[in-house]
């Protein structure tokens, strides 16, 4: 199976494909509307010299834009989740539950928390599908 370097456009495309191909996701996410911006804080010690900005967009079970972007674009997202590299890596590997990470303050959310809680199943499914993408992490290279 092909591997992808984390936080690259190819990696995002592979993730998007996994989501788009999941019938279960379509069912779970049929109510979800809107984009999620992901920000990974810079961590030069882990080969992340600058913050990483990702824009992911979901609409009633479908997936729309999945882009590596700039800060301005990420700020247009309906929800923005920010965290350190180590936390994102743990979340993406399912070593840390995204919802727990939010509650513990390990990830920060900007946006309607009530909506996120209501749709926690959708979020978990999206993360589950990310774990299926063979990922090479910058600090593991």
């Amino acid at each position: 199976m092909a591997t992808h370097k984390a936080f690259t456009q190819e990696w995002l495309d592979a993730w998007k494909q996994k989501i788009a191909g999941s019938q279960e996701y379509k069912e779970i996410a049929k109510e979800w509307e809107g984009s999620v911006g992901l920000i990974c804080n810079a961590d030069p010690s882990k080969s992340i010299p600058n913050p990483v900005y990702l824009f992911t967009d979901y609409w009633h079970g479908d997936v729309r834009d999945f882009l590596v972007c700039d800060e301005a674009k990420v700020q247009t997202a309906k929800f923005i989740m920010t965290g350190d590299y180590a936390r994102w890596k743990q979340v993406a590997k399912k070593e840390l539950d995204a919802t727990k990470a939010l509650m513990q303050g390990k990830l920060k959310l900007k946006g309607d928390l009530t909506y996120v809680v209501r749709n926690v199943k959708t979020i978990n499914k999206v993360i589950d599908l990310l774990t299926e993408v063979q990922t090479v992490w910058p600090d593991d290279v």
């Binding site: 919802t99 513990q104 303050g105 959310l109 928390l113 809680v117 209501r118 926690v120 978990n124």
Partner: peptide
Amino acid sequence: KNSAFAESLHLMGSDAAMDLGMM
């Protein structure tokens, strides 16, 4: 102010636990 847990309690009360609990 910095706690998402506190925010969830304020917005949804203790019943914020229902959706996550079902999962």
